[in-house]
Design a protein around this nucleic acid. Sequence first.
RNA 1: GGUCCCGUAGCUCAGUCGGAUAGAGCACCAGAUUCCUAAUCUGGGGGCCAGUGGUUCAAAUCCACUCGGGAUCACCA
Length: 583
Amino acid sequence: MNVFTHFRGIIDAELASLSVAGSLPAEIDTKNVAVEPPRDASHGDIATNAALVLSKQAKKKPRDIAALLAPALEALDVVDTVEIAGPGFINLRLSDSFWQNQVQGILSAGKAFGNSRMGGGERVNVEYVSANPTGPMHVGHVRGAVFGDALSNLLQKAGYDVTKEYLINDAGSQIDVLARSAYLRYCEAHGRDIGTIPEGLYPGNYLVPVGQALKEKYGDQWLDADEDVWLATVRDEATDAMMDMIRDDLKLLGVEQSVFFSEKQLHASGKIDEVVEQLRARGHIYEGVLEPPKGQKDEDWEPREQTLFRATNFGDDVDRPLKKSNGDYTYFGADIAYHYDKYQRGFKSMIDVWGADHGGYVKRMQSAVKGLAEDGELDVKLCQLVRLLRDGVPVKMSKRSGNFVTLREVVEEVGRDVTRFIMLTRKNDAPLDFDFAKVLDQSKDNPVFYVQYAHARVCSVLNKAKEAFSGLDTSDTSLAGADMALVNHPAEIAMIKQCAAWPRMVESAAEAHEPHRIAFFLYDLASEFHTFWNKGNDEPSLRFIIEGKEDLTKARLALIRSVAFVIASGLEVLGVKPLEEMR
RNA sequence: GGUCCCGUAGCUCAGUCGGAUAGAGCACCAGAUUCCUAAUCUGGGGGCCAGUGGUUCAAAUCCACUCGGGAUCACCA
């Protein structure tokens, strides 16, 4: 249960009955009322600004409203004290027994603790990665992949019905380049000397096996043939091969999307025409000439009449072209149709995860969604660059020479779990440093290690306890029956409170579409746990296993088992496996 | 020139729908060590939240402008 929404319900009910009693106006708007943990723990466990928010509506002083509300809250069994503080905050302090009782709930929920119904089963589409199928995944793709995946998991946990999706950009001119590059390798497979790969084609060795496969499947029929003979087939074959490779790479990272949507199919199905006509019918499209961009001299710029979408009607800066000079649709044109397709498939809520270099594209896409469907919602999350380092020294990469670090290399060197966790240790729109040495460091400076270590320590204590008390049942159901009243040290209660904050964390992170908050929360929780552990060094009576006191030991085991469940629950969102022992 | 993102302790960064005395890690300073895993621990100093103005009972948070850093700007995706 989410402690704060629980009390929110109680406070709302009390406000309503004050309305009925005439102490507050009949119609009150409580949507800005917050029931949350106070920033300063000395203010208690739960704080509400209700009196402040309602002051103007009720035409009463905040502290007077607080005084109306306080008695009913004071009357609750689980509330120890109620105080009216500062300008009119109401601070509640809950009884130890209330917190102690939370442990049982956590143990019975297990890793499902924190699951929320906030989303109400609403369908959400999260599109991420969508790397061009022209080569293997490289580090630049990793962050978006991990972010999108964790965000999807997070939304799922918060009660949304999430579809993880990938758009295959298999229609653009880069696919022709891919096909020509693969064709060269096909010639090479037939023993031709291809020399150095010409500028503008993909030089990577990963196309060698594709050339081989083409040779085996199609023989020598295309040698010395015109491009229009083989291009279409090689395009398809090469794209398929690249997508297989990309799916394998993603699998290494633990990313498995359920829908792979082909841009080419979008063109072929006539969907784009359909959507453009629909926009035209709504008056969002016209033929016109754009102003040249200011401040930047572009020699090639020439005024030209083209098909434009009135993005400016929806907050964009200029209207955007839907067709290229050769009559083909622009990527934007196709993308509008793609988003409309998602909408028609039942996703009113869509999230796109892009690299930060696509930031200039956000407004026009959101404009298009608004232009097509008033109730459609598109949130675009931009992921900033990852700086790869090795012992503090930047790793040099050059895309031109094909010398980039691949996703596979990263995952094979440091592991999936470490890669995923580190990618979420920064806000998505802030740049992130990824140091091969530091992420494997086994010290508290490394958040992955620190969190994993906390989980492993709990597992280790549970094992030790079975040795200390022969026949002790440490199963979750047994621990759930422990006498939690024995766990009453302030540090223990604080530990429970932090675990109990987990459901609220899930909801707020999901609402903000910010999975990194989970990583920070886990770090804080682990930190609290380690600190508690260390207290046992100074004060042996605070250790988890107390010889001769089986009931107390069991209660403490129940507590730390809860901590482990919350950590496991959080790691699951991040797509990281909790460790039962280190190394 | 337009647009978007960023600017918080010496460094790297958190900061929830606007909420009470702005937090953490590193670094620095001072202590601790027979201990369930020392793969260290405890405590301390350190801030004009880039700046100015505005909205509000209340602003790091919202709005406007300025400064500084990055990204991007029809016919690529």
